[in-house]
């Protein structure tokens, strides 16, 4: 590799480019940050697995040049659970969207966080279902127009960092695709954090969210992130909910220690069963 080679190319399946994402979409930006985070983390590529669900962000697994799994809608986390418990030496990352992880897959998110499974979950939150045409998701802000809320959304959305913290995640951060350096750092920290780590990335979907909500193109949407975002590391997650207007609070909100599922299981069985406990082989 020459010194001028693209530093992230080795992490991508170049034979699958061009990707499917629209011009102005933020998912590619998050993947760029993710590859740099892997690079800085020192995690060997052969020990890294990326698991995705269904949707635009669900296609990330297919572009990563690692063992990668494109699973079913909403079920990336339980697939990753089985993978991690069967191959504890792997670093398992779930990379998916807001609809996949928090509507159809919401139950799995809360239980994986509760169990403190040793995995990283990256949620690209574009506030809509992109792949199916811009429908309402559990994170669509109140008043926002979606194809299934043509008069605007009257449901209260999830505040994802608050949800993650309450369920037991040990690392919780939120950034936008404007904050590429912060995002890369947060992803690196999440990759190196033992336990259930969660990174939310607010990301533009100009085709199906920005256009409908008169935000403009992808660049215009990123400019609103720049204008609206406020960095508050350590902010109480109960105070970081998102609206159509008002501040987008970003930062690292949670960084704490709890025994992982596997450590808890091993220690518990060793105490209860003594020499009779047979640890799973890798």
């Amino acid at each position: 590799m020459s010194e001028r080679a693209n530093p992230v190319e080795r992490y991508l399946r170049s034979d699958r480019i061009p990707h499917i994402w629209c011009p102005g979409c933020g998912i590619g930006t998050t993947v760029n940050c993710f590859t740099r985070a892997i690079d800085e983390s020192g995690i060997p590529m052969d020990r890294l697995a990326v698991v995705s669900g269904i949707g635009c962000t669900g296609r990330v697994a297919g572009y990563m040049h690692v063992d990668s799994f494109h699973t079913t809608h909403g079920r990336a986390i339980p697939f990753a659970t089985g993978l991690k418990l069967a191959a504890p030496g792997m670093k398992v990352v779930v990379y998916s969207g807001d609809g996949d992880l928090f509507a159809i897959g919401g139950n799995h998110f809360i239980h994986a966080a509760r169990r403190n499974l040793d995995m990283t979950v990256v949620c690209v939150n574009n506030l809509t279902y992109g792949m199916t045409g811009g429908q309402l998701t559990p994170t669509t802000p109140e008043e926002a127009i979606a194809s299934t809320s043509p008069y605007g959304n009257f449901e209260q959305p999830f505040n994802l960092p608050y949800l993650a913290e309450s369920c037991g995640a040990v690392y919780v951060a939120r950034w936008t695709t404007y904050h590429v350096t912060h995002l890369k750092k947060a992803m690196r920290e999440a990759l190196l954090k033992k336990g259930f780590s969660f990174v939310e990335v607010i990301s533009p979907c100009p085709t199906l969210y920005g256009r409908r909500n008169r935000i403009g193109d992808g660049l215009d949407e990123v400019k609103t992130y720049k204008q609206r975002s406020v960095i508050r590391n350590g902010a109480p997650t109960s105070e970081v909910s998102l609206g159509m207007t008002g501040p987008i609070v970003v930062g690292k909100f949670v960084d704490r220690e709890r025994p992982t599922y596997q450590d808890a299981m091993d220690q518990f069985y060793a105490r209860k069963l003594g020499d009779r406990y047979a640890r799973a082989s890798q």
């Binding site: 698991v51 063992d67 799994f69 699973t71 079913t72 909403g74 079920r75 986390i77 339980p78 697939f79 990753a80 659970t81 089985g82 993978l83 991690k84 418990l85 069967a86 191959a87 792997m90 139950n107 799995h108 239980h111 299981m265 069985y269 069963l273 009779r276 406990y277 047979a278 640890r279 799973a280 082989s281």
Partner: peptide, 26 residues
Amino acid sequence: PLVGGVFIQMEDELASSIAIAGAVWG
């Protein structure tokens, strides 16, 4: 726990039925 196996009681059958796929690929 006596023979080196991992049992996990999942949150529902959707989760159970794909967790096994993850374990197989592991």
